[in-house]
Design a protein around this nucleic acid. Structure first.
Length: 482
DNA sequence: CTCTGGCATC
């Protein structure tokens, strides 16, 4: 391999000039954040001023025919250019050096304008580089964008305009152009433009990085724009990029919450088809959504497919199916599922049991529900507030509650015992608990006591829900007591 | 990222 010196030695002059320009650009880029005043370059310029200014003055004061053209040019140059005397003197150097110096000056001025938020002036300066052959380059455009994005008042629309101009009239945007725009738009939170640029980037034959697209997807999900997120997800898939699991789970959860279960399932399936290994957590999200929306058959198919593919089911997967069967009124399948679950070595937990108890209650099989209630306690699985609330609700639906007014005095046997158990486990009644009791009281027409419970809730720092007020109002209308 | 799931009125 050639070292730097021999490489330069073999280089064609045109390549050498390229290198020169490039290093110049790197230089100007690396100094873009520095103030232009008081830097070492200025000292050098001042020294040059003394060397060059004297002959320049001589030329101006003692005109000589042979120099007229040059002097005329110098004067025009002086008029059109900036205030630095040092730079005026450079006019005496050979033409290409003049261009270089001129160009470098324009570059730094353009960048200073852009950084300080004077976009229009920066753009004008960029356009004035056209006087220098072959300028401005794509690097100058990129610098303009980069510096403008660093300024305080960023106008993304004008950046898009500049980009569109580059595309139409040149210089053609390069990978840096797209990355600069993408990073800027992302950090400013403008996802729509960022997505547009990402698509443009792909269309121009460049590939946006995984991390940029992943960041974009996360941001998009963070602000809740589902359609944009799906677009980014789609783009990622086309590039064979797979989102990280938390991001995928967020996308799936949000789609499900928006009721777009099919779309969530498709996203999952596409990834699966591409060989992406989805964990049980992603898969359970879909499974639950299917089971809760009455699609137990699809859920079962997914469950079997995952089992076949070797995804380890967990208690949550089985609980989903149990819930799905319960919703369809398939109690026998529900109980069978519990057996399968246990034979698979999966131990039901408090949520599994609560689901079973709830659906047995709904099916009018209260005695069996109580058996499961006992069974969970025997297995060391403590019921929680939701389990108690489910049983309490059932009691309140039945006439078994008897006089709920007695409960308030602590005399009602079953409900009273339930409350004592709850309290002994450190569980305090919540809005649902009160909702069940108030509902039961209202059904019996005991609105006065129901209202007392409402007051008790408020006293315990609980805000009665809309549901509770609906219940109370409904009961009041019914007995015409309003 | 250490995640996913269970309860209420008319």
């Amino acid at each position: 391999m050639l070292n730097g010196r021999s490489w330069l030695g073999f280089m064609h002059p045109s390549e050498a000039s390229n290198i020169h320009h490039r290093s110049y650009l790197i230089f100007s880029f690396s100094h873009r954040s520095h103030a232009p005043f008081g830097c070492p370059e200025k000292v050098i310029l001042l020294q040059k001023l003394h060397l060059f200014l004297y002959p320049a003055m001589l030329l101006c004061t003692i005109p000589r025919v042979g120099y007229c053209c040059r002097i005329g040019k110098t004067v025009r140059f002086l008029l059109s250019f900036s205030s630095s005397c040092a730079l005026r003197a450079v006019e005496f150097a050979e033409e290409s050096n003049t261009h270089d110096f001129n160009y470098a000056k324009l570059q730094s001025r353009m960048q200073n304008y852009a950084i300080s938020g004077h976009f229009r002036k920066a753009l004008e300066t960029l356009n004035s580089m056209r006087n220098v052959p072959g300028k401005p380059t794509v690097y100058d455009y990129n610098a303009l964008m980069y510096c403008h994005l660093k300024s305080r008042n960023v106008l993304l629309e004008v950046l898009v305009e500049v980009y569109v101009g580059m595309k139409r009239f040149g210089p053609a945007p390069n990978a840096s152009t797209f990355n600069t725009l993408l990073n800027g738009m992302l950090s400013l939170g403008n996802l729509k433009d960022a997505f547009f640029i990402a698509k443009e980037m792909c269309g121009s034959g460049f590939v946006p990085s995984f991390s940029l697209l992943s960041k974009m997807l996360k941001k998009s999900l963070g602000v809740g724009s589902l359609d944009d997120s799906l677009g980014i997800f789609d783009l990622m898939l086309r590039l064979e990029y797979f989102p990280t699991e938390p991001t995928l789970n967020l996308l799936i959860s949000m789609l499900i919450k928006a009721g777009r279960i099919r779309v969530a399932y498709s996203a999952f399936s596409v990834l699966w088809g591409k060989g992406y290994f989805c964990s049980v957590y992603s898969y359970n999200l879909i499974l639950w959504a299917l089971c809760k929306s009455g699609q137990i058959c699809t859920a079962l198919a997914l469950f079997c497919l995952m089992k076949k593919k070797g995804v380890i089911q967990n208690v949550c997967s089985y609980s989903a199916l149990i819930c799905g069967f319960g919703r369809e009124g398939l109690e026998e399948d529900l109980l069978h599922c519990l057996d399968v679950m246990q034979s698979d070595g999966c131990k039901p937990n408090v949520r599994t049991y609560t689901i079973i108890i709830k659906f047995l209650c709904d099916a009018g099989r209260f005695e069996e529900a109580l058996e499961y209630f006992g069974r969970m306690e025997r297995e060391g699985c403590d019921p929680d507030l939701i389990t108690y609330n489910v049983i309490l609700r059932e009691l309140c639906h039945q006439d078994r509650v008897g006089e709920i007014s007695e409960l308030i005095q602590g005399n009602n046997m079953l409900v009273g015992q339930l409350f004592r158990d709850m309290y002994s486990q450190g569980l305090k009644p919540d809005v649902y608990t009160y909702g069940s009791l108030i509902g039961g009281l209202c059904r019996e027409g005991k609105i006065t006591i129901a209202l007392q419970l409402r007051d008790q809730m408020l006293g315990n720092g609980l805000t009665p829900s809309i549901t509770i007020y609906n219940t109370l109002l409904g009961a009041m209308f019914k007995i015409d007591k309003i």
